[in-house]
Amino acid sequence: MCAIQIEPVIETQRLRLRRARMTDAPRMAKLLNDRELARMTHAIPHPYGLEDAQAYLAQADIADPDDAALFVIDHPEQGPIGAVGFDSVNGAPEMGYWIGRPFWGLGFATEAAKGALVWANETWKRRYVLARHFSDNPASASVLCKADFLYTGEVRLSPSVARGEAVPSRMMVWLA
Rank of each mutant, 00 (worst) to 15 (best):
M22S: 13
M22E: 12
M22V: 11
T23E: 08
T23M: 09
T23Y: 06
D24N: 10
D24Y: 07
A25N: 04
A25F: 04
A25C: 09
A25I: 04
P26W: 10
P26G: 05
R27P: 04
R27W: 10
R27Q: 12
R27F: 14
R27V: 14
R27E: 12
M28N: 00
M28P: 00
M28Y: 02
A29M: 08
A29I: 07
K30I: 12
K30T: 11
K30G: 08
L31T: 01
L31F: 04
L31G: 00
L32G: 03
L32W: 01
L32Y: 02
L32I: 02
N33D: 15
N33Q: 11
R35G: 07
E36L: 09
E36G: 04
L37E: 03
L37T: 04
L37K: 00
L37A: 04
L37N: 02
A38G: 07
A38V: 02
R39I: 09
R39G: 08
R39F: 08
M40Y: 05
M40Q: 05
M40V: 03
M40W: 05
T41R: 03
T41E: 02
H42D: 13
H42Y: 13
A43E: 15
A43T: 15
A43F: 11
A43G: 15
I44N: 00
I44H: 01
P45R: 02
P45E: 05
H46K: 00
H46I: 00
H46W: 01
H46G: 01
P47D: 10
P47C: 08
P47E: 10
Y48P: 01
Y48K: 01
Y48Q: 05
G49M: 14
G49R: 14
G49K: 14
L50A: 08
L50K: 09
L50G: 09
E51M: 07
E51Y: 07
E51H: 10
E51R: 03
D52Q: 14
D52H: 15
D52R: 12
A53N: 00
A53S: 03
Q54A: 11
Q54D: 09
Q54G: 11
A55W: 15
A55T: 15
A55C: 13
Y56G: 03
Y56P: 01
Y56C: 03
L57A: 05
L57R: 02
L57G: 03
A58M: 15
A58R: 15
A58D: 12
Q59A: 12
Q59N: 06
Q59I: 10
A60S: 14
A60C: 15
A60W: 15
A60K: 10
A60Q: 10
D61A: 14
D61T: 11
D61Q: 14
D61K: 12
I62T: 14
I62L: 11
I62K: 06
A63F: 05
A63S: 09
A63C: 09
A63E: 08
D64H: 09
P65T: 05
D66A: 12
D66Q: 14
D66C: 12
D67Q: 12
D67Y: 05
A68D: 13
A69T: 07
A69V: 12
A69R: 07
L70K: 02
L70R: 01
V72H: 01
V72D: 02
I73Q: 03
I73V: 15
